[in-house]
Nucleic acid binder design. Structure first.
Ligand SMILES: [Zn+2]
Ligand SMILES: [Zn+2]
Ligand SMILES: [Zn+2]
Ligand SMILES: [Zn+2]
Lengths: 158, 158
DNA sequence: GCTTGAACCTACAGCGACTGGAGGTTGCAC
DNA sequence: GTGCAACCTCCAGTCGCTGTAGGTTCAAGC
């Protein structure tokens, strides 16, 4: 994340294509302060350089790995200080790994229950439908694991 | 989802406690038309019966299994017609199962890459940090699978 | 009967991470 | 010089809630 080859002069659309992002997403990152405001042409259009391309690629890669933008913000500022110890960066990655694992665990519990739901139903009427019956069951007797209940709840996003 | 024992007269707070929901969530479901508007007391407070409790439990159970509210809406309307064939309900559940599986697959790819990220880094400086290096790598050479890339993208929510 | 405090009411803003559209300007090719 | 794609800003919507503000009602205790 240091400076190098300047002056390749990408438009926002070209930058989007180059990094697999969408134009609006780039503007959104700029608005959030994740991307620095680039120079503008006479006609007020954004002009990006290699620095921006690298930074955006970093952000996108982080997002693809599910890091929240806040974590990416921290990682970016760490990346700009190559002499500091990397314990902080590692901790952020560990945390993300833990989050991913906990989402997987929860989703596997859902997978189990959904499998049993659909497996037990042999195309009868709604009155006999296992799917409906399970959902309607107040007592949750059918649930092998009560793991599909809230726990630490949320596990959204990529 | 038929009528039975009426007149137990729950307040919204009691209903919330009984079903493990939050008060605002119940009002939110009513606003969306998922929960029928209940009777009101003289002082304009909501009064719920067993019918509402069952319906809310159905919704919550569906949510715990990750069904989107739209799917739950369909399942609810199916549940009210016990003589119809249940193919539709089964299809909705199958779809949800497929969604869960695809989320799991994607998360496992992330888990892999995150594991390799943190495993290779032995607490040096940021300049040598594998975590930062991987994220900054424009070429994605380090990625065994390119599975952490967009694909069908989103896999949010519970 | 009166006071207190919890629980209720409506209406609306905010989360995260975008995405899409309206309505207008610029850039470039023919 | 004209057409049209790509750009600009600003704002609303997505999903499933959650939280807050500012007010009313209820039930219990005195
Ligand atoms: Zn069925
Ligand atoms: Zn269950
Ligand atoms: Zn490191
Ligand atoms: Zn990668």
């Amino acid at each position: 994340m240091n400076a190098s080859g300047r002056a390749l002069g990408l438009s926002i659309g070209q930058l989007a294509k180059a990094t697999g992002s969408k134009v609006q997403t780039i503007r959104y990152y700029e608005q959030l302060g994740l991307m620095p405001a680039p120079e503008r042409s006479q006609g007020n259009q954004r002009i990006y350089g290699a620095r921006h391309e690298r930074r955006l690629a970093f952000i996108r890669h982080g997002r693809e790995l599910g890091f929240p933008l806040d974590a990416i913000r921290q990682l970016l500022s760490l990346a700009d200080q190559p002499d500091r110890p990397c314990a902080e960066a590692d901790a952020i990655a560990q945390e993300q790994l833990a989050a991913v694992r906990s989402k997987i665990a929860r989703l596997r519990a859902l997978e189990d229950e959904l499998e049993r739901m659909v497996a037990c139903c042999a195309s009868g009427t709604i009155g006999d439908c296992h799917v409906i019956e399970v959902l309607a069951d107040l007592s949750h007797q059918h649930c092998l694991t009560p793991d599909h209940r809230g726990q630490d709840s949320e596990f959204g996003d990529a």
